[in-house]
């Protein structure tokens, strides 16, 4: 079998200790939570840290408090399965529940954490491969190489943001609390992501994501639609997260965020503006979907043809909006 490379493993019991170990080892060190993303990548030698610092024993990261009415705090090291077992939370934040419930498959959800999900590495057909494979094809920019076969001639990496949680957190207006050697900061989820396949997070390597702050949901309605080939296991190759603040049938505020069609989750502001101040009528929905599909530019580095994914951006946006408008979409749920 593929073997993990040797590494030193620390399991600190406090944030201070974790930060100290991280800064002691600098770029050699890496944070690990459930390891469901990191360990397979280490086996394939995509990431080769000499030191791993587990965050799972740090009490602050296991925090879970609040309600949909007052807002919820989700500790970064809670497993997805644990979050999904919170009925109240599932009801209050349906988009989040949908997204987490569609991550991978049950064993991964039992190990994988909220923080790990939000920090999950970007993915690419040319990168998520073994060392042997990458050597046979020629190493790429993201690891060990100097060119990008996806966009030859370019200087940037187009690896795909593949977290189901990320677009939803942005749509819900979540804030993230990070603690690092230079102190603490709380930022909007949207600011956490960068449009760069390699440096995809706006985060220092030693910074720890401590918790996610979900705002009160009040009049917000939300949903998440995910494209993947199979009903389980697969990463998203398109995610559509929509949150709308509705007032007696009128959309007052909208957030539409597309996942897995670029290196970071993408807010489609033009589409949001189109919705705001309107009812969810078929022509509005069609116009919004059109703008969404026009605004994304998936490349040939995931499952499915890239043009198909672009087309589906429109279909899935329509379905998400129709669902929020109250249509029963049982018949269409199969492609989600």
């Amino acid at each position: 079998m593929l073997r993990l490379p040797p590494f030193r493993y620390y399991a600190p019991r406090s944030l201070e200790e974790a930060l100290r170990i991280l800064s002691d080892h600098g770029s050699q060190a890496r944070i690990v939570a459930g390891g469901t993303d990191l360990y397979p990548k280490m086996k394939r030698r995509q990431i080769e840290p000499a030191v791993l610092v587990s965050v799972r024993r740090i009490p602050e990261l296991a925090h879970l408090a609040g309600t949909g009415r007052e807002g919820v705090t989700l500790g970064a090291s809670l497993t997805l399965a644990r979050v999904l077992a919170q009925d109240e939370l599932v009801l209050a934040y349906p988009a989040l529940a949908r997204a987490f419930a569609m991550v991978a498959h049950p064993p991964v959800r039992s190990m994988g954490t909220v923080g790990g999900n939000l920090c999950v590495d970007t993915r690419c057909t040319y990168y998520d491969q073994t060392f042997f494979w990458r050597e046979a094809l020629g190493f790429c920019l993201k690891k060990d190489g100097t060119t990008c076969p996806v966009a030859p001639g370019g200087t940037r990496c187009w690896a795909v943001s593949s977290s189901d949680g990320a677009p939803v957190m942005i749509a819900l207006g979540a804030r993230l609390r990070l603690v690092g050697p230079r102190g603490e900061r709380t930022i909007a989820a949207e600011e956490f992501y960068r449009d760069d396949g390699i440096r995809y997070l706006d985060k220092e390597p030693e910074e720890i994501l401590v918790e996610v702050l979900l705002p009160p949901q009040e009049d917000w309605k939300s949903t998440y639609w995910k494209l993947r080939r199979r009903g389980s296991v697969d990463f998203p190759v398109l995610g559509v997260a929509v949150a709308l603040r509705m007032e007696s049938g009128w959309c007052r505020e909208a957030r539409i965020v597309l996942g897995a069609v670029g290196s970071c989750p993408k807010r489609i502001r033009e589409a949001e503006t189109l919705l705001e101040g309107n009812r969810l009528e078929p022509d509005v929905i069609a116009a919004v979907a059109h703008v969404v599909a026009r605004s994304v530019r998936p490349l040939k580095n995931t499952d499915f043809l890239h043009l198909y994914r672009k087309k589906m951006a429109s279909v899935f946006t329509q379905r998400a909006l129709r669902e929020l408008a109250g249509a029963s979409l049982m018949d269409e749920a199969s492609a989600c």
């Binding site: 057909t125 494979w133 697969d234």
Partner: peptide, 17 residues
């Protein structure tokens, strides 16, 4: 080079299909 030599990338149905 085989483009999907893994159980994740080589798509075979899950019990759900």
């Amino acid at each position: 080079v085989h483009t999907a030599p893994s159980m994740l990338d080589y798509k075979s149905p899950t019990p759900l299909e």
